[in-house]
């Protein structure tokens, strides 16, 4: 089994994701947080991310949430991509405020952003 490191830039959280799992599924399987989970099937758009670095394979995703132009620049649904290298990404889905912690200076307890 090959696995790659996924770094969520918003939180600084990273995890290892097997290459047979979607980036979202890999995160959820380890109980990690950072990318909001919705339908996990490419339909609802809540797990949308911008991949800043790295390569991935992908399956079909709803055009309601990802245009062809966005898809071409790595703005994709994380439930529909599987890593083929280490990835750096940031969260842009519409539930970001619900689950994405802000990164606080050392010594300050993390709070949920609004």
């Amino acid at each position: 089994m090959t696995a790659y490191t996924i770094l969520i830039e918003d939180t600084g959280e990273s995890y290892r994701c097997a290459d047979h799992r979607s980036v979202l599924q890999g995160m959820e399987a380890l109980g990690k947080k950072g990318i909001p989970a919705g339908c996990r099937q490419g339909g609802c758009g809540v797990c949308k991310v911008q991949v800043a670095q790295g390569s991935f394979s992908k399956r079909v995703m709803s055009r309601e949430h990802v245009s062809a132009e966005e898809e071409a620049i790595g703005c994709v649904l994380s439930c529909c991509i599987k890593p083929t290298s280490d990835l750096r990404l940031s969260v842009i889905g519409k539930m970001k405020k619900n689950v994405c912690r802000t990164v606080e200076p050392a010594g300050v307890r993390p709070v949920y952003s609004t």
Binding site: A37, G38, G43, C44, V46, S62, V99
Partner: peptide
């Protein structure tokens, strides 16, 4: 849960 009011198609 977060999904009930947010996740729709």
């Amino acid at each position: 849960n977060d999904a009930f009011l947010t996740v729709v198609t």
